[in-house]
Structure formats: structure tokens, C-alpha cells
Design a protein around this nucleic acid. Structure first.
Length: 484
RNA sequence: GGCGCGUUGGUCAAGCGGUUAAGACACCGCCCUUUCACGGCGGUAACACGAGUUCAAAUCUCGUACGCGUCACCA
């Protein structure tokens, strides 16, 4: 059987990570099986319509490297792929369902009241009395009265289906309401349009969120009424988020940046996000590999690696993943990207190439760059405590001793020799001559020109970037502050 | 509340009747080191609970608890 999967978002203008993951899995599964991945837009709720949302979805998928083979923006033989352009189709099938006796027009108002003396029973705002209106009368009333089309659920028995992930799932039919298929405005509901389109577009595997598992028996009944073969269903577990108070709930905006776009703006690489998200709810069987290119993902993907339980989105692990991608990047590529996040470089313009290389293995996120390099642009305030480091056994007294000597040495170095390797060579010779421990000697030097305990790069690298004049200026200022 | 789905360290997770219960992130320690980071080595830490079935249960069954979902003319 030809594999055809689809991603069918509603255009809300926001794509959170759970949605993206659903798209990813559907895409990977299709690619793995030489199938077709389709993008369909489910915009049957006109109240929810957001301008540009379709473009936004297309852009996001593209950035995530999830490329539809067919559908909105691509075309194909099963269009249109936007549901609001398919209303005639739904209407036709709704009428057919009425003929088949599997649905009926309901003339109750939006909120049917219990006052209806003939109502045998009320179900959440409607009653089933309309089921009993004779076909002729119903047809006549449909010409003049507003109505909705409801699915006529069996009153007894049960409906079950096989979920590829969860196994057999069974519901009692009496639990099922006569849900609306066609709304008063002529638009189909999700539950109807979904079934029609998945069938017409020959979708073989429906991958969607677990929130749809309870409506699946209704869909099954629809397929049966039409005499259609239902697709395979895979209901994906939700992605949860951790709120600031530590509580865990379904991922949403209140967990901070949770849309793909937010994450990219924060300086996460799209590939890293996609890779991380792939691992949230899926794992490659028989392997502990975690860093995957898109190509590797499509090769490794299989349904049996999917997780049945929900998973929590963890920024720590995403940070790690992003760091891995940053480190693996080509220098040139990293430099270009780093510049974009660095903001106003000021006097760092010329030395930024060097700075970027120091940053490359140290960053988790690109947006950390401005804060990381601020001390280079402007000398931070003096803090004597920075001169104490337990590990290297250094303290302010040692700094007071060594710094003036170092200053003299540095002043003697020619401007043309002011470069990392040479600086290191000279300082190292000095350190050995004096019999200092290397780490101990370099600590106060670095602090005296940085006033920051953790810096990208070591002492000589910072001296290099700062240049002779600025380095000397800073060191003098530090010596003065230390002797106060 | 009814119905459905789920429950292995803080987090992601392997496990498919017999395991010293993998691995990763985070955390801690050590090594390396021109700080931090990178890299290397090591450590702390888990089968929700209770009954069955079985020679043997994290794995199967049933209950309980907890979490999530659903019960819209939203998707």
C-alpha cells in the first residue's frame, strides 16, 4: 500500500513544538516508506481565522526542513487542500449520509431547551427528536429552515479500532453523541471534514495528537457508513511543559518560548530544535544515537520507537543539543550567524572573527553572545573578590605582587608582536623564569583586564583581542584599584 | 463525574517473563587544561501502590492512586 501521510493544522498563526513534532513524524514516516507527505489546512472555523497564518505554517515547515510533497503551496491531484475551498464536497457527502440514514438534519436552535415536550431526551444542548422527523418532511424543512447535520449514532453496541501505537481501543456506542457534521453556516466540523478529506486524499496513516483518540470511534462509524476503508491511526502522546513553579502541564505559551519560531529567535538552530523534538516521544530502537541529521532521521524512523506516554520539554537538553550543533558548524557559517546575534559590535568590529572562534565551543545559544562579549567592549567594574581562586591558589595579594611586573613586561612588547601566540610565548618565559605556576600566574592577568570570572578565552587571547593600548590601560586601572 | 489513554532516576528514555534495570541531559567528583568551555574517566539517582498468574514479573492480569485527554455548531 502506498503510504500517504498528512499534516493538517488549523491556521492559528502559532505553531508550537507539539504540532511541529506531529508534522515531523508524519513527514519522517512518509519519507521512510517512500510515501507522500501532504500539507492540508483545516480552516473550517471562521472565527479562528488568522491572516497570514497559512504563510506562517509554510515558512515554519520550511525552516524546520519538513517539506511537503503535495498540498498547499505545492499542488497535487487531490486538491484543493484548503478545507474552506471544499465546502461543496462536504455538503454533498453530508446529504449522502442523510440518504444513507447515518445522519439527519437537526432544526433545534443553538441551545435546545428542555421545554420541548416531545423531547425524549436531551443531550448537551440538543435532543434526538429530530432523528424521528420523516425524510420527506425533513427535506422540505431544509429548504426553508436553518439546520445542522448530525451524525446518527447507534444506541447500543460498541465501536473499536486498532491504534498502531496503543493497540485496540473500544468505546460503547451509547457514549457517543449525535455530533454535528455540518454547521449552521454550511461549514463542516473537524470530525466530518477530516474523514472526508482523509479518504478522498487517500491518506494511509493518520498521525495526530492523542486528544483525538476519543473522537476516533465517531470517525470509524462515518467510514463504515460510507463503506470506506479507514486509514491506520496513530495517536501521539502530548508534549508537556514545565512552568516556573515546577508544575507540569500541556505545553503552551506560559512555558516561555514554545513555538518553533520563538526558539529560533532565541538562538537555537532549526536543525537542533528538529533533532531534539524528534527525540521527544520517539527513539531509535537498537541504538543510543541522539544527534541525527534529517537524512539520518528518515532512515532511522519507525513507528515502534514512538512513546505512549507524554514527555516533558526540557530546555537543558535542548541547550546541550544546540551546543553540539554549534560546535559542529563550519567556522564561516558560525561567524555569519554569530554576527547576526552579536548586536552592535562597536570597537570589536575588527576582532570579532577571533572572538567568534572562542565563543563557538562555549555557547548553548546564540543569544548569549552580547552578554558574553560585553566585557570586551567596556571594562567592567572592579571587584577584588575576582582575584581569589581556590583551585589555582591565587588571591589579591598575589595579584598585587605579580601584576606590576607583568605590566612592565607587556609595555615592552612591540605593537607588532601583540598577538596571541607571541604574547603567550613571552608571558610563559616570564612565568618560568620567575618560577610561578602557570595557571596561578595567568589568573590575575586575565582578571585584571577582564574583571569577569568566566570569559571566552584565556588571558593572552583576551590581551590579543583588546590590543596593547586598551590592555595596558585596563591593567593599570586594576593595579591602582588593588592598591587602594 | 462518565468514558478513554498513560505511569522506569529531576528530565528524555532502553527494556517485551530470568539483566549487576542500558544510554543521554542535568548535577557532583577526578583528570586534562592558559580561566570557563571542550575532551576523558567516574559517581549520586528509577520500575506509583496492592493483589494475583508463574519456579521466576519492570515486563502478563485485575484493582487502587496519580496524571493527561474527552464529553463544542474548536480543531
Amino acid at each position: 500500500m502506498k503510504v500517504r501521510t498528512r499534516f493538517a493544522p488549523s491556521p492559528t498563526g502559532y505553531m508550537h513544538i507539539g504540532n511541529l513534532r506531529t508534522a515531523l513524524y508524519a513527514y519522517l514516516f512518509a519519507k521512510k516508506n517512500n510515501g507522500t507527505f501532504i500539507l492540508r489546512i483545516e480552516d473550517t472555523d471562521q472565527k479562528r481565522y488568522v491572516a497570514d497564518a497559512v504563510d506562517f505554517i509554510k515558512r515554519t515547515l520550511k525552516a524546520a526542513n519538513i517539506i511537503p510533497d503535495e498540498g498547499v503551496g505545492v499542488g497535487g491531484d487531490y486538491g484543493p487542500y484548503i478545507q474552506s475551498e471544499r465546502t461543496d464536497i462536504y455538503k454533498k457527502y453530508a446529504m449522502k449520509l442523510i440518504e444513507l440514514g447515518a445522519a439527519y438534519p437537526c432544526f433545534c436552535g443553538e441551545k435546545a431547551e428542555n421545554e420541548d415536550a416531545n423531547a425524549e431526551k436531551n443531550f448537551g444542548g440538543y435532543n434526538r427528536a429530530c432523528r424521528n422527523i420523516p425524510m420527506d418532511e425533513a427535506k422540505k424543512r431544509m429548504e426553508t429552515e436553518p439546520f445542522v447535520v448530525r451524525q446518527k449514532m447507534p444506541l447500543e453496541g460498541e465501536t473499536s479500532f486498532i491504534d498502531e501505537l496503543h493497540g485496540a481501543v473500544t468505546f460503547k456506542n451509547e457514549e457517543l453523541e449525535d455530533q454535528v457534521l455540518l454547521k449552521r453556516d454550511g461549514m463542516p466540523t473537524y470530525n466530518f471534514a477530516n474523514v472526508i478529506d482523509d479518504h478522498l486524499m487517500e491518506i494511509s496513516h493518520v498521525m495526530r495528537g492523542t486528544e483525538f483518540i476519543t473522537s476516533t470511534p465517531k470517525h470509524i462509524l462515518l467510514y463504515k457508513a460510507f463503506g470506506w476503508e479507514p486509514p491506520a491511526f496513530i495517536h501521539l502522546s502530548p508534549v508537556m511543559g514545565k512552568a516556573e513553579d515546577g508544575s507540569i502541564s500541556k505545553l503552551s505559551k506560559r512555558h516561555g518560548a514554545t513555538s518553533f519560531e520563538d526558539l529560533v529567535n532565541l538562538g537555537y538552530l532549526p536543525e537542533a530544535v528538529t533533532n531534539y523534538v524528534a527525540l521527544l516521544g520517539w527513539n531509535p530502537k537498537n541504538s543510543t544515537q541522539e544527534v541525527f541529521s534529517m537524512k539520518e532521521l528518515t532512515e532511522a524512523f519507525s513507528l515502534d520507537g514512538l512513546s505512549k506516554s507524554s514527555s516533558v520539554f526540557d530546555y537543558e537538553k535542548l541547550n546541550w543539543m544546540n551546543g553540539e550543533y554549534l560546535k559542529a558548524m563550519e567556522d564561516e557559517e558560525f561567524l555569519t550567524l554569530a554576527k547576526k546575534f552579536a548586536g552592535d559590535l562597536g570597537n570589536l568590529e575588527n576582532s570579532f572573527d577571533k572572538i567568534a572562534m572562542l565563543l563557538k565551543t562555549r555557547l548553548k545559544r546564540l543569544d548569549e553572545i552580547p552578554a558574553e562579549i560585553a566585557f570586551l567592549k567596556e571594562f567592567l567594574p572592579f571587584d577584588e573578590n575576582l582575584y581569589t581562586n581556590k583551585r589555582n591558589k591565587v588571591n589579591p595579594d598575589f595579584a598585587r605582587e605579580i601584576l606590576p611586573e607583568v605590566l612592565t613586561l607587556l609595555e615592552s612588547i612591540d605593537e607588532t608582536d601583540w598577538e596571541n601566540a607571541k604574547l603567550y610565548e613571552k608571558l610563559n618565559a616570564f612565568i618560568e623564569e620567575k618560577g610561578y605556576k602557570k595557571g596561578a600566574a595567568l589568573w590575575p592577568i586575565r582578571i585584571s583586564v577582564a574583571n569577569k570570572s568566566v570569559t571566552p578565552g584565556g588571558a593572552t587571547e583576551i590581551l590579543d583581542i583588546l590590543g596593547k593600548a586598551e590592555s595596558i590601560r585596563r591593567m593599570k586601572e586594576s593595579i591602582a584599584n588593588l592598591s587602594k
